[in-house]
Amino acid sequence: MAEITRDDVAHLAQLARIEMSADELDRMAGELAHIVDAVKSVSEVAGPDIPATSHPIALRNVFREDSVGHVLTPTEALSGAPDAADDRFKVPAILDEE
């Protein structure tokens, strides 16, 4: 069984910005360990000589020309905003550093 503790999940939940109760953390730790056990054989299959595939179809050099396209108005941009002021999105205080 993969070892995933409640603290591990608490850390992941913090990284993922999802508030979780103690109960949720415990339940998630159990489920996560279960799932990781089911998928971990993946790490034993491919050796260092096997390249990774990040894109299923290999394309390269897909670019856009540098010319201005469509732009939203500030009103359109802010149309879904939970809170706004002075044509800007409004958020509560930021605890973190800048």
């Binding site: 941009a77 002021a85 002075d86 044509d87 800007r88 999105f89 409004k90 958020v91 509560p92 205080a93 930021i94 550093e97 800048e98």
Partner: peptide, 12 residues
Amino acid sequence: RIQGAEYSLVDY
């Protein structure tokens, strides 16, 4: 400054 601010406004 960020410290002590009540709220912040975001311009993208």
